[in-house]
């Protein structure tokens, strides 16, 4: 590695590249959540409450994902039931 390369490689490690990387991740995340309907957190909470009437599930057992492409919107609900399903009486 020549003297010039040493300078160059040092240069590339400037803080600007760190800034760019951080921003790209942040902006991608912000944009993914930007168009989500605002009712999603409440929906997730209520679904969880309903399920917990019947099954003892963890607080994180329900995940709600919202995706959008040009032609459709997909609302994906994922409920993780415990292995030995213990149903509550009722």
């Amino acid at each position: 590695m020549g003297l010039l390369d040493l300078f160059r490689s040092h240069r590339q490690r400037g803080t600007a590249s760190i800034a760019k990387e951080r921003l790209q991740i942040l902006v991608a995340h912000d944009r993914a959540t930007r168009n989500q309907p605002s009712y999603l957190p409440r929906l997730q909470q209520e679904i969880l409450e309903v399920i917990r009437k019947y099954v003892d599930v963890d607080m994180n057992a329900v995940s709600v994902n919202y995706e959008q492409d040009e032609t459709r919107e997909v609302l994906e609900l994922n409920i993780v039931l415990p292995e030995a399903t213990t149903t509550k009486g009722g």
Binding site: Q12, K20, V27
Partner: peptide
């Protein structure tokens, strides 16, 4: 400062936004 790698370049900002 961009040349020194201390500041986001115009292309960086354009690419991000």
């Amino acid at each position: 400062r961009v040349a020194k790698g201390e500041m986001l370049s115009v292309n960086d900002v354009r690419e991000i936004l």
